[in-house]
Design a protein around this nucleic acid. Structure first.
Lengths: 189, 189
DNA sequence: ACCTGAACACCGTTCAAGT
DNA sequence: ACCTGAACACCGTTCAAGT
């Protein structure tokens, strides 16, 4: 009856951790609970993630934060449409894993975002922006999206706590704000 | 010799907590260590902050995140100069208390930022923006500043860890990005 | 190689007790 | 009113031991 458990892997561990964070919040993610959810003792995790919880959180960040703008496909799109599509997708990802957001702001895994920034920079470069403007623009776009996701997570919590009448259309606000940055970019080109 | 201790107060507790976070990082802030730094048992803190560590962290956020744009003084400034001044000051504040930044993104104390957002909205309103544009603009500016501060904290950590050659001028990058949003706003007025 | 059990040095918090 | 001591239910992690 007791079928043999499939072996523990790094990926299975990080998936289970993400499920706990999404379902119960970051503060409920403990090594012991994570072990339970994998039907294993907590100490077994250290065999696959020698740096322990630090490495686990790094894995969560990587899973959520790495979201490059596709340069390849989307043939008929100009650079602004492409960036808008990226922004909407990234926003969904960040809000879908809101519990990981605080980790993005911590000192952990500092290279996880640089790949995403580089892909935005590449889009702008191909759109004809000079090097420094592309760097500035990429950082501005990424900053806005991350910052706005942070405000949204807090805003959603505030609404359900204090003022259920006040229904803000966060998606529209996000799009309007992102278009503001795009307009500033287009004017600077 | 043993001079009588000055009595514990909410403000003294939060000040001491901020000093620990700034000096040693958020993870080193424990109730026991905080008690030590105040020369008191950890349990005494609960008498002044009944909601415990939750209330303590709320206090830290309030101390850092509340930074309204001054509408009153700065007479000779137009709205863009005023917002630039606000942004530089807020960036300094956030980077000076980088350890508190992750808390800003958490579900805690969700009203701490709304006052700051409202003050930006007021600046834009007085500059002649219609209501909805002022709301969108205020959120976009605040999102950018918070998001950029997050990227900076991570970038500074990355630099000292990996590539000490790569000296990015973050202040210039911040100003250029903020001006991008301002340009988008000015075009939309 | 992969997992377990017991142990260590911590946490936040409650609660009765002191002054 | 303000603080303390002891205790409880947790943490992350190490380390020797099992298979």
């Amino acid at each position: 009856m007791s079928h043999p458990r499939e072996p523990l892997t790094r990926d299975r561990i990080i998936d289970a951790a993400l499920r706990i964070v999404d379902g119960q919040g970051l503060s409920r993610l403990t090594m012991r609970r994570l072990g339970d959810s994998l039907e294993v003792e907590a100490m077994a995790i250290y065999h696959h993630l020698p740096r322990g919880k630090e490495e686990l959180l790094d894995g969560l960040i990587e899973h959520v934060a790495v979201y490059p703008a596709s340069v390849g496909n989307g043939a008929g799109q100009d650079w602004q449409q492409r960036l808008r599509g990226w922004a909407d997708g990234y926003r969904d990802r960040l809000l879908g894993h809101a519990g990981v957001l605080p980790l993005l702001v911590t000192r952990r895994n500092p290279v996880a975002l640089s790949g995403t920034a580089a892909s935005l920079q590449e889009v702008l470069r191909r759109a004809g922006f000079p090097e420094t403007a592309a760097t500035t623009g990429a950082h501005a776009l990424l900053s806005f999206v991350i910052g706005h996701a942070a405000l949204e997570v807090r805003g959603l919590a505030a609404r359900q706590a204090a003022d259920p009448e006040d229904t803000v259309d966060w998606a529209a606000r996000f799009t309007a704000g992102f278009d503001l940055v795009l307009a500033g970019l287009a004017a600077a080109r």
